[in-house]
């Protein structure tokens, strides 16, 4: 079943086109990576799906509803993990408070969180392996732990769709792999539709079902083996790109590289 439908999407910021003529569909249960260089419109695409950015042309629909007209019950089914900025280590917010915020939309106006909401918070933290940190200040955790908490905040909504913007930014390489693996496991265990924006192609190749290559417009969409072509990637990145295989895995090398 089609969950997200992007049709001839165009978005402009201050008269400058950020996205132009994007069309593709995402089916229920798909795990799709949105790939492109910095400034290619990846985050704008996510924000268009969330209804935060309104399309100038075309349309974006989710759950068969125009994204800029989404009602709360629709939004409650979308878990969003924004690009993690620097969290002030002194900001007074605990892990429990952070994850509970994910419930607020479902709880509704003028109501207070109940015991069931607290149970869901604990369950979500358990899913990401952070249940032992429930009372910790968010700012005291490492970048990888903070990202797990933000994933738990999205999961506590009990979403059907997970939208993630650069979930591995500012995290060391081993932790990046564990975060991507965690997302992959959650996608399978909870039957989620996942749309993951990243500039790190190699990190997600083994995990995603589909990839969409964008740089203002859509260059290709399909299985990784179908879309990862040197010519297309070179055009998108504006630099020489090599696609190579080693020990059964596909690797993409963008820009400066040296033969040894």
């Amino acid at each position: 079943m089609k969950i997200i439908e992007v049709k001839k999407l165009g978005v402009k910021y201050g008269g400058i086109g950020v996205l132009s003529g994007l069309s593709f569909d995402i089916e229920e249960g798909d795990y799709i990576g949105i790939i492109g260089p910095n400034g290619s419109g990846k985050t704008t695409l996510l924000k268009s799906i969330l209804g935060i950015v309104r399309p100038d042309n075309g349309s974006v629909r989710i759950f068969d509803c125009a994204c800029h007209k989404l009602r709360c019950h629709h939004k409650a089914k979308i878990g969003y993990i924004p690009q993690k900025g620097q969290i002030d280590p002194n900001f007074p917010v605990t892990v429990r408070e952070t994850v509970m915020m994910g419930r607020y939309s479902s709880i509704g106006l003028l109501r207070r969180p109940t015991g069931r909401d607290m149970d869901l918070v604990i369950d979500a933290l358990r899913e990401v392996g952070m249940e032992g940190y429930i009372a910790a200040p968010l700012g005291h955790l490492s970048g990888g732990q903070q990202q797990r908490v933000l994933i738990a905040r999205a999961l506590v909504q009990q979403p059907e769709v997970l939208l993630m913007d650069e979930p591995t930014t500012g995290i060391d390489t081993p932790t990046q792999h564990s975060i991507i693996k965690l997302i992959s496991n959650l996608q399978k265990d909870l039957a989620l539709t996942v749309l993951l924006v990243t500039h790190d192609i190699n990190m997600i190749i083994p995990y995603v079902d589909m990839m969409a290559l964008i740089n203002t417009k859509l260059y290709a969409v399909g299985k990784p083996s179908e879309v990862l072509h040197e010519k297309t990637l070179t055009e998108i990145y504006g630099k020489q790109v090599i696609v190579t295989t080693k020990e059964g895995g596909t690797y993409v090398i963008v820009g400066d590289y040296h033969y040894v």
Binding site: H74, K75, P82, T98, M101, Y104
Partner: peptide
């Protein structure tokens, strides 16, 4: 709701 927008206004907006 004030609690949420104080911590993360964009995320609050995204969740309705």
């Amino acid at each position: 709701e004030f609690h949420f927008i104080t911590f993360d206004e964009e995320m609050a907006k995204a969740s309705g």
